[in-house]
Design a protein around this nucleic acid. Structure first.
Lengths: 150, 150
DNA sequence: AATCCGTATGCAATAAAATTGCACCGAACT
DNA sequence: AGTTCGGTGCAATTTTATTGCATACGGATT
């Protein structure tokens, strides 16, 4: 993991659709050598995967919301049951069990408020193990990184 | 935007490193036709970009934390000042201005607790406009999707 | 129903890229 | 100095992407 590797990873975190030839040129290696590095990074699992990122605005899921959830019963099985429920929802894009102020934090991507209301019914109101939940609607997204700083 | 487009988008959200030939075969199109669709999806901005996702465990940033921040002064310029500060931090992977319980929510990716402590100094303790902040350490990640359900 | 138009398709030819074998280089170690 | 190992560039080969072209499909219009 040297300077060139880091350079490649930074390139590919920004745009992985470039050709190997192109990137090789930018980092100052021959295409073959560059390709072998990229393959190594993938084989070693440093590059987990390469994916297409869709434009959220074009997908219809334009409303983002954060929800903190407090459970009544905190046992492992209760936590697992709720997380399973949440994870199964398409509108739930992130779900974390956390320490501190609350038990679970969800990140939602919603099409509209109807979807939010219906989701709340399924995840919170119809459940017996929910003590409280607080919703924070996202007003402004200042940063939303898939890239990891090296 | 038909069934085949959606199929392609789902494929590429999971793995965009496959060859066009391969994906064309899976969706039942000729390579040329499939390629033209993918180019159209990119040109229209439905596919925003293609990126490499690194393994967080291999990057050293293994601790995830959520922080809610309450500001003392809520004016636009105060909000902006704090967000600018937060966004500049490498450990801050997401930053949202929100309604409700609090003003700002941050998602942190940390190497260790020292980094957390130092970050708190810079973002919270040294600042005059922070009323309170609550940290929730992530115990379990049940879902963390870059993909958007269509 | 016939026509027209815009768009999508498959095929085949071509261009470009990825992949591999091979010889070589340089650092680390004996 | 000799040896080993990992990485490199070059060139040949294979695979893929790209494009031109003829055709097929669907919708709107006459």
């Amino acid at each position: 993991m040297d300077r060139i590797d880091r350079k490649l990873l930074n390139l590919m975190q920004r745009d992985a659709s470039r050709t190997n030839v192109d990137m090789a040129d930018e980092v100052g290696l021959s295409p073959s050598s560059c390709l072998r590095r990229i393959r190594r990074l993938r084989k070693e699992g440093i590059i987990d995967r390469v994916v297409a990122i869709l434009n959220p605005a074009r997908s219809g899921r334009v409303i983002k919301a954060l929800v903190t959830v407090e459970l009544k019963l905190h046992g492992e099985q209760h936590m697992r049951r709720f997380l399973d429920l949440a994870v199964a929802e398409e509108a739930v894009s992130q779900a974390y069990a956390v320490t501190g102020e609350t038990d679970v934090v969800l990140v939602l991507r919603l099409r509209d408020m109807e979807e939010y209301d219906a989701l709340c019914d399924r995840l919170f109101r119809d459940q017996t193990n929910i003590a409280r939940f607080f919703t924070m609607m996202v007003i402004r997204t200042a940063k939303d990184e898939t890239a990891i700083a090296l």
